[in-house]
Write a protein that binds this DNA or RNA. Structure first.
Lengths: 198, 198
DNA sequence: CAAAAATTTCACTATTGCTAAATTCAATGT
DNA sequence: ACATTGAATTTAGCAATAGTGAAATTTTTG
């Protein structure tokens, strides 16, 4: 319990200094001085300095003012820290076949396990195959993809589309959606999700 | 100015109540009472109630405690609200050619503008073409892709890989990376980034 | 090197996050 | 219908610190 508490505490501290460091990175990327950011955000120079160096923790109100001034979504501040990449390649013959929900659809996971932010999947749907009769969604994130061959039917928020080879799509995952093979030959597509779902 | 200030103020208030509402949603989804969450998070029942109803704004410290207790990444609280999708399809003939940095590379944007979380790009690199001699990175996010034809050279965090048709990759964008055509014929690939960069 | 610009430090106060207890509300059992 | 229990909300108040503005220090520029 005590060791566990200690671990959590360490984690917190790292996360906090990351927010400040990211804010500074973003500010410097935009070539702003603290004074300029202070003017844009309506906060004081001293506070911004202290926040960036992790000396104080900004309220959400202040944080919003800063991220608005930096033209940056607030969520970017809370992304996981970068770590060295390994096992980032999946060879064609090493793809993992995924559990098949509806029949007439083959899904292969093309992503390594080590990356949690994005995932790439190869899907082949036989004629008549579909993700299901009912649209579904995911709580957060986004999806996109492109058609390699064949025709895909796609429904998003009640609107239906037919896509052919070379067409592409992107939508937020909260929107209700479903998809199916829209031709009389199999459709082969690349389907990408963020964050990783599988 | 006055009307503009007012608009910003309204936006802030909406965002704040969204955080609380999302926390409640998440808590109910996990079938926790306020008391149980209080115990898990080490915060008081009264505070949690007030946060969920937007009566008070939690410090980042408290917010971290709550999100840890709810087993939820902090960033989820700051996602944009879902909105109806429109213009989510890009037809093959409507792709936009992108500004070409290095020579011998063609990039086409396959994503609609309306989705900011993910972006899909078709890249064709002629033999000898490269993203540049120096690895680069992006402050946040992730990238993935797959090879349609040809061979791609990819360097991530100092490690080099050669990928052929059907192979795929994924890595966090903070890692230094560069890529090039690794064969004597053009390489054709799908490149996906989250969040959107272009 | 001097001056200007940028950042950090400092002392202090206004603000409110947060608590514990009281109250209210909702559900259940007799 | 009433009593009890559990869950959520409200209340009063204080300890902590977010945030300020000015001074000091550091860095950059010419």
């Amino acid at each position: 319990m005590s060791a566990e508490t200690k671990g959590v505490s360490d984690l917190k501290e790292k996360s906090e200094s990351l927010v400040g460091a990211r804010l500074r990175m973003r500010r410097l990327a935009r070539r702003l001085t603290l004074q300029e950011l202070a003017e844009k955000s309506g906060l004081s120079v001293g506070l911004l300095s202290q926040i960036e160096r992790g000396m104080t923790t900004p309220s959400l109100r202040s944080l919003r003012q800063i991220s608005t001034a930096l033209e940056m979504p607030l969520g970017w501040l809370f992304e996981p820290a970068p770590h060295p990449s390994d096992d980032l390649i999946v060879r064609a013959e090493n793809r993992r076949k995924m559990d098949l929900g509806p029949g007439a659809m083959v899904k292969e996971l093309m992503s390594p396990d080590s990356v949690l932010d994005i995932q790439i999947i190869r899907i082949v749907i036989q004629p008549g195959g579909t993700s299901g009769d009912k649209p579904y969604n995911n709580p957060i994130g986004a999806k996109c993809g492109t058609i390699i061959s064949g025709q895909l039917g796609l429904e998003v928020s009640g609107k239906e589309y037919v896509l052919k080879a070379g067409d592409s799509f992107a939508f937020r995952a909260e929107n209700m959606h479903r998809f199916w093979c829209a031709g009389d030959e199999p459709v082969d597509l690349i389907w990408v999700v963020t964050p990783a779902l599988y």
